[in-house]
């Protein structure tokens, strides 16, 4: 029983580590001390009932949480061993390294597709050396290039919802991030667009650490290597998706994923 089963993911180095993370909105405690690790080149899914703190959690991982007035975080979030919650760390730099894709596709309405892809850079005053190439590369990686290569001057908002979401992923990729956070990226998409994004996640997984928040158990089971179940601001269970979806340890997890609520 010492050998590892053949299909087990091989151990990956740790990209991020969260230690005793507590997140507040004013006096309200939204995360009550979360500790977990995010491995390199793996997909980690965050699941749990509405309001349990999933979005708050991933927003702490790129210092987006503190943008909300009155919100603050305690504890530590290590990125490659360095605590990014430290005062000496530039949040803008963190957000470049840890990119985020939101639930609602949110391309900038007045910008063209091309401008949207570059927006993360230009808004930060960065001029890429070869913008045309970066646009093409990012759109290719986001599996959108073939559909838009002849109309890069169209506005981003003229695309379909699924295309807009891939455009947002391209915008995130143009910043050459190391970690990608996705907050319910498919909740506004049809099954085909969802399958495209999931296929894309499989590809991106080869190079990035990915965290995805989802309300779909099937999606978490399909895309994730590891799954973490949050409940009322606490991490209840974190394990391989294989185990979580066939034999979870906690009865809380079991009740939630099988649809036995309260």
């Amino acid at each position: 029983m010492t050998s590892v089963p053949p299909s087990a993911p091989e151990p990956r180095p740790e990209k991020m580590r969260v230690e005793s993370l507590r997140a507040y909105f004013g006096d309200a405690l939204a995360l009550k001390g979360i500790s977990m690790s995010v491995p390199e080149r793996c997909v980690t899914a965050i699941i749990g009932p509405s309001g349990c703190g999933k979005s708050t959690f991933i927003r702490c991982l790129n210092r987006m949480h503190e943008v909300t007035p009155g919100a603050r975080a305690e504890g530590a979030v290590f990125l490659d061993g360095k605590n990014i919650l430290g005062d000496d760390v530039d949040p803008v730099d963190v957000r470049r390294r840890v990119g985020m894709v939101f639930q609602k596709p949110n391309p900038f309405p007045t910008m063209s597709i091309r401008e949207n892809v570059l927006a993360g850079l230009t808004l930060n005053g960065i001029r890429p050396p070869d913008p045309a190439r970066l646009v093409e590369e990012s759109l290719r990686q986001a599996a959108l290039w073939d559909e838009v290569k002849d109309s890069l001057d169209r506005t981003g908002t003229s695309l379909s919802g699924g295309q807009q979401q891939r455009l947002c992923i391209a915008r995130c990729l143009a910043l050459e991030p190391e970690v990608i956070l996705m907050d319910e990226p498919c909740s506004a998409l049809d099954p085909i667009a969802t399958a495209r994004i999931e296929e894309l996640i499989h590809e991106l997984r080869e190079r990035f650490a990915i965290l995805i928040v989802t309300h779909s158990m099937q999606q978490a089971a399909r895309v994730s290597d590891f799954t973490a179940f949050f409940y009322m601001g606490e991490l209840v269970e974190h394990g391989t998706a294989d185990v979580i979806f066939t034999k979870p340890t906690s009865s809380r997890t079991e009740d939630y994923i099988t649809g036995r609520f309260g």
Binding site: P9, E10, M36, S37, D242, I244
Partner: peptide, 9 residues
Amino acid sequence: RKSGRPPVS
């Protein structure tokens, strides 16, 4: 499966 734990924790 031997264990349900992630590789590093």
